[in-house]
């Protein structure tokens, strides 16, 4: 029903403010093409998670969107009635959360937590949902689905829980998945497996992913395009390969320099240069001034 030219997700000029008037998203624009992995990278508090939450309609109540549009496969989320928006987001998107330990309900078994969207939102039959979930559990290399489906979350390891959450996210064949630092809370050894798994499922299912991370190594491995965020503003946007070959913005360069290397972990850990930060501050101030003029 949508022309193929339409991006899967189109964020246009999105601004959000806190009750004290501080802008946490500063006129963010980005588009995710169907089947594309777009990395959102930046330090803590840069607003990368906030963008994901805005798209999924789960911003904290204190954050208010004051400007801009979000189009999911051409449908303007801001113009839909709450119920229609909820159903659309439930049907076409999914979330791979940051912390698998807190993202599963401790008092419900894994099985119903995985099938509830398929059955209750998408209206699948119980058998169909069950078969689908088993197929996905197989794809995330869970070998004993029978046991896992009957488990409570506390009976599974963090890596297993993240596999379950990934399987659940892909189960409904969403067009867009928001992956919110999906490996940050895991052991380093498990991180790599999980990342590989997400990349593999993404390729096989052709799902677009908005991949939120602070880890440039992850960005290089998984994404085709990158948006670099600072203080809620996209400071650089590029193809991943191009970005790593020739970063344009001094902040991107500084971020790359700040990535630790295993050969010399301490010497390679450089904080972002004061000069770069001063430049960023000026850039943000100018952007805010320009924004405030028409918005009073």
């Amino acid at each position: 029903m949508n022309a193929p030219a339409k991006p899967c997700l189109d964020i246009r000029n999105l601004s959000a403010v806190l009750p004290n008037g501080l802008r946490v998203l500063r006129s963010v624009s980005l588009a995710v093409e169907p089947g594309e992995v777009r990395a959102l990278v930046g330090e803590s508090g840069a607003g990368k998670t906030m963008i994901g939450k805005a798209v999924l309609g789960v911003l904290p109540p204190s954050v208010r969107i004051v400007e801009g549009n979000m189009l999911l496969e051409g449908e303007d989320l801001g113009r839909l009635a709450p119920k229609a928006r909820r159903t659309l987001i439930g049907a076409r998107t999914a979330l791979i959360p940051q912390d698998p330990l807190t993202a599963l309900n401790p008092s419900r078994r894994i099985g119903p937590q995985m099938t509830d969207r398929l059955v209750r939102i998408l209206g699948w039959s119980g058998e169909k949902a069950d078969a689908r979930i088993r197929q996905l559990l197989d794809e995330v290399q869970i070998r004993d689905p029978e046991r896992v489906l009957k488990c409570y979350p506390h009976e599974l390891s963090g890596g297993m829980r993240q596999r379950v959450l990934i399987a659940a996210a892909f189960a409904a064949e969403p067009r867009l998945i928001v992956a919110d630092e999906p490996t940050t809370a895991l052991d380093v050894t498990v991180q790599k497996q999980i990342l590989r798994l997400i990349a593999q499922l993404q390729r096989e299912h052709g799902t677009a992913i908005l991949f939120v991370t602070h880890d440039l190594g992850v960005v290089a491995k998984i994404s085709q395009k990158v948006s670099v965020l600072y203080a809620g503003k996209v400071v650089e946007e590029a193809d991943t390969a191009a970005l790593f070959a020739a970063p344009q913005h001094p902040y991107t360069l500084a971020l790359m320099a700040a990535t630790p290397r295993y050969t010399d972990p301490f010497a390679s850990l450089k904080p972002v240069d004061d000069k770069v930060l001063a430049g960023l501050a000026a850039e943000i101030a100018a952007a805010d001034q320009a924004w405030r003029r028409p918005h009073g």
Partner: peptide, 16 residues
């Protein structure tokens, strides 16, 4: 909590 946020993303209403 996170699992409640996840349930909202799944499309469930606040009452649900």
């Amino acid at each position: 909590l996170d699992y409640v946020v996840l349930a909202r993303v799944k499309g469930f209403s606040e009452t649900q």
